[in-house]
Design a protein around this nucleic acid. Structure first.
Lengths: 144, 144
DNA sequence: TTGACAGTTGAAGTACGCTTCAAGTCAAGG
DNA sequence: CCTTGACTTGAAGCGTACTTCAACTGTCAA
């Protein structure tokens, strides 16, 4: 009794919502690897599902696949370092997007005729930092 | 006295932070166009700066350039319709990113050894919707 | 034996937003 | 006249994350 809970690529695909082609791609990218082969076909350990969950998480947090690889590949604490960095960038990114969103919402309520002739938009430089500050952007050292 | 406040491409580039190549690209994409040419060189009306501000805004809000083109190209109120749509998508996107961020922060505080072996991550399906709901996601008809 | 079928491979294609490159043009200054 | 420097063009290249394609292989059931 050795090879239990091994699953094929399409099962992994179905379980994760990814396509088989994406899983092969991830393999080439060094993100995952099958536990073995059976008649040439990849057989995955179910633990790959956890790994794929981690990959998806990091991707949503703005990691590129190369960065994901670094984070999951290196020592146990490597991901923490990278994550703290990325979280900073993520805060900045979210602030910018939120700022854009707020401005767009304001413009929707404005009686301007076109976006590019809207004063709210053209006046943007210099005073929309206010919106950024209203958001709860954590301090520099918030993430441990 | 006819051609006043016309500026060259590098001035536009400098004023906006975009590269000249990007401005030419935007032109090919139908987003902007010079007021005229002088010895073959593009001469822009300063109003292009407002337009570029609008373009940048929409881009930050998640519009592709093709969508920006639609929004700024069609009738005066076309952008409002598109903006309302996009704002919905944007809320969804931001919620997902925020959820990922929260989970990552939790994992940072967790004593797990690796991200892919972290219970917080592998248990994700089913109960992280809580985080999404904590965020102020506007109701379906919040935007007008 | 013979299909059918799921999977395999490497190579090429797709989408997006630009940048880079080679080759040429134009106006001004020495 | 000739160089310099900013600009022009079309075409190709880049980075990211995949998908698609063609050709092939292995397993199973009829």
């Amino acid at each position: 009794m050795a090879e239990q809970d091994l699953i094929g690529i399409s099962e992994v695909a179905h379980a994760t919502g990814l396509q088989s082609s994406a899983l092969r791609y991830y393999e080439r990218a060094g993100l995952i690897s099958p536990a073995g082969r059976e008649g040439g076909r990849r057989q995955y350990d179910t633990s790959v599902l956890n790994r794929l969950a981690a990959i998806a998480l990091l991707q949503e947090a703005g990691f590129t696949l190369a960065e994901v690889r670094q984070a999951l590949g290196a020592g146990n604490d490597a991901w923490r370092t990278l994550a703290r960095q990325k979280l900073g960038e993520l805060d900045a990114h979210m602030a910018r997007v939120a700022s854009a969103k707020e401005l767009l919402v304001s413009a929707l309520r404005c009686d301007c005729s076109g976006l590019d002739t809207c004063e709210l938009v053209s006046t943007r430089r210099g005073r929309h930092r206010t919106v950024v500050q209203k958001l709860s952007t954590p301090g520099r050292d918030e993430y441990l």
